[in-house]
């Protein structure tokens, strides 16, 4: 991500340090991860210590300090999905992709994340790929669509 793109995002918030979280969020959305160099740039431009930026970047699940795959798989481990077999689903997806939660496969195709409740409890256990619920489909079929 280049400086101009970062500047563009920071300028949207008039460079105000109190919007640090929103700024990191937009960078994450655009770049899909937060490279250390980018975090340093943000810290300098907002005049917020690098420590504070790191604190926030490591606290929230949404942020990633390592590159993410092209398609993010998100498996809900909330209690509604738990009682409907989320753990079985997770195991199946792990076997299919060969990666564990927090990892990205070697060709950068998929990242696997677990998290909880997107409020779609009636479809549980819920798997999202690229933000889309994969409903009424086996994990294998769903993954095939994104290969």
């Amino acid at each position: 991500m280049d400086n101009a793109a970062i500047d563009h995002i920071i300028n949207k918030y008039q460079g105000q340090a109190r919007f640090l979280i929103q700024i990191l969020m937009e960078i994450q959305e655009e770049n899909r991860w937060l490279p250390r160099e980018v975090l340093k740039t943000v810290s300098e431009k907002l005049d917020v210590s690098f420590r504070q930026v790191m604190r926030i970047a490591t606290m929230y699940k949404t942020f990633s300090l390592v590159p993410k795959g092209h398609n993010e798989i998100h498996i809900c481990m909330g209690n509604a999905c738990h009682v409907r077999g989320a753990e079985r689903l997770l195991k199946e997806v792990q076997e299919l992709t060969g990666i564990k939660p927090g990892e990205t496969d070697s060709d950068g195709k998929f990242s696997l994340e677990i998290g909880c409740c997107r409020g779609n409890c009636c479809s549980g256990p819920v798997m999202e790929i690229g933000g889309k619920t994969q409903d009424k489909m086996s994990p294998a079929e769903a993954l095939k669509n994104y290969e």
Binding site: R51, Q52, R55, T58, M59
Partner: peptide, 9 residues
Amino acid sequence: KEVITFVDR
């Protein structure tokens, strides 16, 4: 100096 930080949660 802010050299040390808490990370993760």
